[in-house]
Amino acid sequence: MSGGNLHPGLNLGDHHGKAHSGAEAVVFGFWIFLMSDVVIFGLVFASYLTAANPMGMAGGTGPAEAFDLGSVFAQTVILLASSLTFGFATLALRHEDGRRAIARWLAVSLFLGLGFLTLEMRDFAHMIEVGAVPQRSGYWSAFWGLVPLHGLHLAAGCLWIVVMLAQMATLGLVPAVKTRLLRLGLFWHCLDLIWVAVFSIVYLGGLMP
């Protein structure tokens, strides 16, 4: 990578001028926000683990009856692929491939994100069917406090992609739009990172033989 990295994530590079230099403070600030958000998730994870025992389950449905490993695997791969396609969108931005190329990769990421959410909704519907609802036990409260929180973040990310597509169409690639795309990229990758903890702790941990 060329010199002059000012912030985490892929940098625009010096050839972007003001958009690159202006990104330093903004992206750093967003990075701090993400760290704060990571702490929120960390504490929800800790609360989940506190409830993941027979006392927390209070004799209700267990994870084995409610989780579908195949669907979770599909969600994981879809989300990982969306991280890759978002990376390509950022590369298209950095190397000035033009609005159309960026929008294409963003649209693919959006499509994958929505696919992830669809599968997750289907899983949730199944859980409700088998009685794995938050009103049933402390364990399911903790689950419904954690996994849908990630889903909500992802939904916000999808909305953000839509807004950015609209801004690229109306405002063009002005510096503000460029740094917003960089921040959206960090957000998107960070959600994938949190998903790694979700599938490892909640799903794989819950289905361990």
Binding site: A58, P134, S137, G138, G145
Partner: peptide, 21 residues
């Protein structure tokens, strides 16, 4: 927010019964 979930949506994060803590 967990307390809010308990109060509004009948969650069991901090209730006496059903595995709340």
């Amino acid at each position: 927010l967990m307390l809010a979930a308990d109060r509004y949506l009948d969650f069991h994060f901090f209730t006496n019964d059903l595995g709340g803590n």
